[in-house]
Structure formats: structure tokens, C-alpha cells
Design a binder for these strands. Sequence first.
DNA 1: CTTAGGG
DNA 2: CCCTAAG
Length: 481
Amino acid sequence: MRTERKPHLIKKPADAKRQRVDESLGPGLKDEATEVEHLLVEPKSEHVSVDRVFCFGKENIEKHLKMEDFSCAFDYGWKIGSGGLDSIHGQGGDDLKLEVLDGLLDEVDEVDDIQAAHDLSSACEDFLLDIEFPEKFSELDCGLYEGSNLRNSSSESHSPGGSSNSVGGMSESSIVTVQESNSKNGVLGKMVNCDKHHTIRSECGCQAPVMETIRPSKEHGQDFVESDDEKPLVSFIVSNKKVKSSVKVTKGGTLLRQKRLRKPTKRYIEEFSRNSTTSGKNKCLKVRSQEEFSQIPSESQPRRGRPKKIMPKMEFESDCELSASESEDECKRTKRSKTACDRRKHQRMWTLAEVIKLVDGIAQYGVGRWTDIKKLLFASSAYRTPVDLRDKWRNLLRSSSAHKHNRKELQGETNVKHYVRPLPKTVVCRIRELATIHPYPKARSPNLSSINSDPSSKQSTTTKGTPINTHGRNLRGKKCN
DNA sequence: CTTAGGG
DNA sequence: CCCTAAG
């Protein structure tokens, strides 16, 4: 089922993407690209192509990447990106990967990044920093996975017999990789590696589905179990076949994953319990989720038409048919009503690129002009409302001042343990700078004399004199009326 | 509608 | 992230 959907996902963006790649990379790549297109367009071949990609990755990663599971494929792809475009020319399968990766993240908002990609350095940066893609990928699978669970189908359905073999293959390579990982990684590589790793692994518990897709050659399939059984990693992955039961007993990373996975579920359960008490709303809900998952990554839409204030009320009596008339924007997405269980948006993880963009914007426009920042820097991102930006900034401030430069080297370990925020040092520094330049109101109160019983004093003190800020306010002020 | 602030 | 109050 998954393999059916993926081609659609890939095909569309890949098409658009291909042209871009052609432009920027030159004629040398065209043949490859065309070939890729065929592969992608053809549903059946798609599997093969992906397979090829990942296999390719697997063979090479042993040299210079550290990783432990399926994410190696992604990492490798990113690595290529970081290595510069010439490496793409050098190796046949890579451009394919690049496209696939690109295509997936292309959908919504990466326009600016793409444009920037014409420049080599920019390209590197973007590819390195933007974790958007893995997110998307993960979310997709995650959604599917979860959807399956909701429908109460057994785990066998999405990880048929072949999966065990794939698991074996992957884990073997990863073992080798882990062993000689440390020496080879560049600093940057390490950092990004950690980032992506973190993202992928924490975002969802979609190990099984992805593995199935990856499906490396099954030659090594068997022996590893006996020979390398001692490795915790192996045991982890192997046990992961049973997924549900084994999740909690494994490492911390797995624990986190479980938590991550549960997050959306919680939301669903919430709505579930509320609706199910009255009648068979379950069915409706189930249908909804099914639709949603089959619909597209679901991220693409302007996630927040803001259900307005009326929604909460409707929520309670919302029958499947009823709500259809209410949330028009939602209706677009799923014709099957959808019961107003979408109060909370899909918690998009902030990518490093986004954070940097945000910081840039703040540096330019100053703190407080969130709409401006949103319009100029996040114009392409339908999600990320100005409020989101502000919230994120608040969090950034808090986290940056929390551990200051005290962050431990998180790459020294066998990369299994770090679910601490990557947050590159550079970014933290910038945040701190900005924090000093325009202190966020209330977040920190440097010399505010405070203790004025007059409530209005709060405003005056917190607003601080950042000229840019006031300017912005005035500018907007005219529109306000 | 936009921000600020709290949950 | 969400919600609410205030401009």
C-alpha cells in the first residue's frame, strides 16, 4: 500500500525538480535525470529505483558515515549533497537520490532554498541544514504506520516476510559503520549527521515501513544474527520486528521514538474518547485518518485556516455530515468531513534551516515584527504563522540561555544517546547576540526597575527602545485602522 | 489583525 | 502549539 502511494508523491515534485537540476548541474546529468524520471514515474520501477539508491548508499557508507539503522540512506544522500555537486557527477546513483530527496521536500516551501541552490556553497548549506525532507519522509511513513494501527491491522501487513531480511542487511552494514565511524567524519559532517539522525529517529517510529522500502540485498541477511548478535544494535533492530512489544525495552532512543509516536495518537485518543462516548463516531474518525494519510503528506496545505472561534462549539455535536458545512478550508482537504479533530496542527518540527531563517529575520527586522518576518522569510511556508515564529523565538531564547555554550559534545558517543537539541554553536551564538540586542520582553528583565504598581509601566519598560521595532509598529499601524 | 504573554 | 487579552 505504501509503495503504491509513494510514486505519486515522488513523481510530481521530481518532475519539476528535474528541470531545476538540469539547469544547475548542466548537461552531464541529463541522461541520468531522464532515466530517473522513468524510474520514478513507473510505479513498479519505483521500488527498484529506490532500492538501488539505498543499496548504493549502503555500500559506501561504510567508509565515512556513522549510523545505525535505515537512516543511513538518508544520511548518505545528504552527505552527497554536502560533498558538492561534482560528487554527483561522479556517481551514477547519487543524482537519483538527490532528486528523490529534493522532490520530496519540494512540495511546499523550499522554493527559496532551491533558488539558493544555484550557488554551490548555498547548496551545501541548504542541503545540510534543511532537515525538512527527512521530516516529511518520516511523517509520511509515520502516518501510514499509525493509520495502520488505528485500523487495528496487524503489523504483519506492512512488514511482510521480506522485512526481516532487510533488517538484517541494514544492521550489518551499520555495525561496520559504527565501529569506524568516529575517525572519518568531518566536524560539519558530524554535526549535520547528528541533526538528521535526531530528526529522523525522533520524529517517528517508522522503522519497519522504511526498512521495507529500503530493502537491501538479502545476501547478508542471515549470518549477522549469529555472528553479531552481541551487538546491542542488532538486538535492537532484530527485536524491532515485533515493534510494539519491544519498543520500550530497548535503548533510550527507542524510548523517545515511542514517545514521539504517541504524541499524535494522544490527540486522536482525546478526540476519540470524546466522540465515542456518544455514538459510533469511531468509524468516522477512522475514515478520516485513513483519508488523511492517503491524501498526501498533509503538510502542504495551509494548516491553519484557524478554525475560528466557532469551531470549538461545533466540535461537540459535530456529526460527520454536519461539520462538512463548517470548516470549508478543511473540506478541501478531505471530502469526508473530518469531525473537527484537527484542532491541533501537526506539530511541525523546526528544522535547522528554519531556525536560521528565523534568526536572520529577527536580525534584519528586529524582534516583534513577526508578520514581516513571516512574510519575507517564511512566505513559502504555509505553516509557521507569525505567532509560531514568536513562540519559536521565545523557545530559542530560553534554550540558548539555558545551556549557554555549555552544550556537551554530543557526537562523541555512539550517537545512540543524543536526543538533545542539535542547535549548532553558531546558531546559539547568533541567538544570544540577538537576545542582547533586542531583549525579548518579559523573557529577561535586565535592569527594569519594575515594581511599579502601575500596570502601564510594564508596557513601556518591556517595549524597550529598539528603533527598528517602533518603526515597524508604525508601519503596520497605518494598516491597522 | 497583530503582539504579548500564559498555559 | 493553543488560547486570550490588549493595541
